[in-house]
C-alpha cells in the first residue's frame, strides 16, 4: 500500500510539473508577449522596456523555473489587467466556484445514486429506460443551451429564480442543476453496473437466504460495496466540474474562478490565465490522486497495477 501510494504520488507530481510547463508555455506560443503587451504603435524602446520589466529577455527555461518556484509559494505575479497579485484575484473568486462544484456534485449524487439503484433492481423496467433516456439527453444537450432554457422557464416565464448573480442561495439553484446534470449519467451508469454485479454475488444470496428484507440487502449489503467506485468517480467528476464551470458561470454571471478565466482570456491577461489553468489542473490532480489511493486502500486488487 505504501509503495503504491508513493508511486501514485510520483506520477501526480510529474503530471503537475508537466502541466505547469504547458500552462507557462502557452504565453509564448503565439509569439513575443512583450510585443503583444506594448500594443500597436509601440517603439522598439517601449518593447525593450517591457521585456526587461517582466524579465522576458531571460532564457525561457530560467523564466519558467522562476515562475514555477514562485508559483509553489503562491506567487503568480501581478495581473496585467488589474495590476493586483493574481493569487488575491483567485482567492476572491475561487469560493464561488468551489461552492458551485460541491453543490453540483452533491446534487448529482443525490439524484443519480438512487436512480442507479432503482434501475439495477429493475433492469429493463420503466425506471431503467427513464435513466437511460436522461443520460442520452444529457450527452446531446449543450450545457449552455440547457442553462438558457432553464433561465427562460424559471426566470422569465415563472419568475421563480434569478438568472444572474451570486448573492443568495437562489442564485445557485439553476447553475447547480445545469452543472450537476452532466455528472449524473456516469454516476448513474456506474451505480447501476456496480449494483448489478454485487446483487449477483454469493453473499447477497446468503443474505436473502437469511431472510433479510430487500431494503436491508440493498442498502446495507449491496450499496456499500457498489458505492466505492462511485465515490472515486465523483471525486474525478468534481475535478472536471471545477474546470468546466466556466461555461455555466458565464451564462449565470456567477463571478467565480471560471468567470475570471473567461474575462482574463478576453483581456489577454496571461499571468491570470496561466495561474488558473494550473490551479484547476491541481484540483483535478489532487482529487484523482485521493480517489486512486482511497480505491486502493478499500480494494487491495487495485494496488497490483
Amino acid at each position: 500500500m505504501f509503495i503504491y501510494t508513493l508511486k501514485r504520488l510520483l506520477l501526480a507530481v510529474l503530471v503537475a510539473v508537466t502541466v505547469s510547463f504547458i500552462s507557462f508555455s502557452l504565453l509564448f506560443l503565439a509569439g513575443d508577449p512583450a510585443i503583444a503587451m506594448a500594443g500597436e504603435g509601440a517603439t522598439e524602446q517601449d518593447i525593450e522596456a517591457i521585456r526587461s520589466l517582466y524579465g522576458f529577455n531571460r532564457p525561457f527555461v530560467i523564466q519558467y523555473l522562476d515562475w514555477l518556484l514562485r508559483a509553489v509559494s503562491g506567487d503568480f505575479g501581478d495581473s496585467f489587467y488589474f495590476k493586483t497579485p493574481v493569487i488575491d484575484l483567485i482567492a476572491a473568486h475561487l469560493p464561488v466556484t468551489m461552492t458551485l462544484g460541491v453543490l453540483a456534485i452533491t446534487f448529482a449524487l443525490c439524484v443519480a445514486v438512487p436512480l442507479g439503484v432503482l434501475a439495477a433492481t429493475r433492469p429493463n423496467s420503466f425506471v431503467d429506460r427513464l435513466c437511460l433516456f436522461f443520460s442520452v439527453m444529457g450527452q446531446a444537450m449543450p450545457s449552455f443551451w440547457f442553462g438558457l432554457v432553464l433561465i427562460m422557464i424559471f426566470s422569465i416565464w415563472f419568475r421563480l429564480l434569478p438568472a444572474s448573480g451570486a448573492d443568495t442561495w437562489k442564485h445557485f439553484v439553476l447553475p447547480t442543476i445545469v452543472l450537476g446534470y452532466y455528472a449524473m449519467p456516469a454516476i448513474m451508469r456506474l451505480t447501476r453496473a456496480g449494483m448489478l454485479e454485487v446483487l449477483s454475488a454469493d453473499y447477497i444470496r446468503t443474505a436473502r437466504a437469511k431472510g433479510l428484507s430487500q431494503n436491508k440487502i440493498l442498502f446495507k449489503h449491496a450499496l456499500r460495496n457498489a458505492i466505492i467506485p462511485v465515490v472515486s468517480l465523483a471525486a474525478v467528476q468534481l475535478g472536471f466540474m471545477l474546470g468546466g464551470s466556466i461555461v455555466v458561470e458565464s451564462i449565470f454571471a456567477l463571478h467565480g474562478a471560471g468567470f475570471l478565466a473567461w474575462e482574463s482570456i478576453a483581456r489577454n491577461d496571461f499571468p491570470t490565465i496561466q495561474a488558473l489553468i494550473l490551479v484547476f489542473s491541481m484540483f483535478y490532480i489532487v482529487f484523482t490522486f485521493c480517489a486512486d489511493v482511497a480505491n486502493a486502500w478499500l480494494d487491495p486488487r487495485m494496488r497490483v497495477n
Binding site: 468546466g244 466556466i246 461555461v247 478565466a261 482570456i265 489553468i277 483535478y284 490532480i285
Partner: peptide, 11 residues
C-alpha cells in the same frame, strides 16, 4: 486529463 479542456481551448 489534468488540463481543463474548455479553458485551454479558449486560451
Amino acid at each position: 486529463l489534468a488540463m481543463p479542456v474548455v479553458l485551454v481551448a479558449l486560451a
